[in-house]
Design a binder for these strands. Sequence first.
DNA 1: TCTCATTTCAGTAATGATTTCTGTTTAAAT
DNA 2: ATTTAAACAGAAATCATTACTGAAATGAGA
Lengths: 142, 142
Amino acid sequence: MTLKYSRQRQAVWDFIQTRSDHPTASIVYEEVRRMYPNISLGTVYRNLMLLRDMGKIGTVDIGDNAVHFDPNISLHEHFVCRKCGSLTDLDTYDLSSLRPMQIDFHGKIENYSMIYYGICEDCLKQQASTENSENQSIQRQT
Amino acid sequence: MTLKYSRQRQAVWDFIQTRSDHPTASIVYEEVRRMYPNISLGTVYRNLMLLRDMGKIGTVDIGDNAVHFDPNISLHEHFVCRKCGSLTDLDTYDLSSLRPMQIDFHGKIENYSMIYYGICEDCLKQQASTENSENQSIQRQT
DNA sequence: TCTCATTTCAGTAATGATTTCTGTTTAAAT
DNA sequence: ATTTAAACAGAAATCATTACTGAAATGAGA
């Protein structure tokens, strides 16, 4: 039951702390492998889940069939771009006071996960420039 | 490109409409199989995803490694019990007016997914009764 | 410092959800 | 009735994650 130190866990922890882009286990594995070439994927998983269970990191599920790990355990929300799939943090108004208005709900709400979906700034710009060039080619055709 | 009628798709649709508990593809498969014993799992997946892409049903991702399908496509939130894993609907205050307060966010938010986690009413009751009997046995020991 | 129980590891196999592939069947338009 | 694109069943493939196993590392006590 006692937690023992391990370089591998330290490396996983250190790496996660440097990232703000919520990497998946596979990405953590690939990156940590640069420092520890024969760390195993299982070890990465075990330690990520351990850190999560200890409440030292968070996880985000955005429906892309892979858990994303988040060094930021403070209350915040996420934004997912449906074009490029990027996952970014959002600070919002204090949602912690939000409560369902449902009168017949008598469970206990402990926390929540709020994920906004849409188009990120970069993809909006790219979309705009694409539309422009499309318009141009249409004009040329007429 | 034209959508053709199929009994299998109809059956998947009909079944989903009867459920308020957000079944997974496997559950839909098992149930629809009663009517069509040799419908294939792939067909169930294809049609569920098709219906989703058409916007006729919704999907919910609660981090249990399986997509849940939701016949209710109106704006609503979900509650997940961390004891029994049950997934239920919640009506909430109008969250659609909520906007991130982040000044430097210039993307476009199109929709969101709000999932509350906690303990459902049933599990709360069960917990309470368990605590009672624990107290009793402690009292007996003294 | 040495010992030893326990934890952690690397490597690999297993699992489970989802997707892809292939040859066959079916809806619906002509 | 013929034809053709869409859909299907069944099986194999993929991908994230978990479980298993024997070896290596950690750290508390002698």
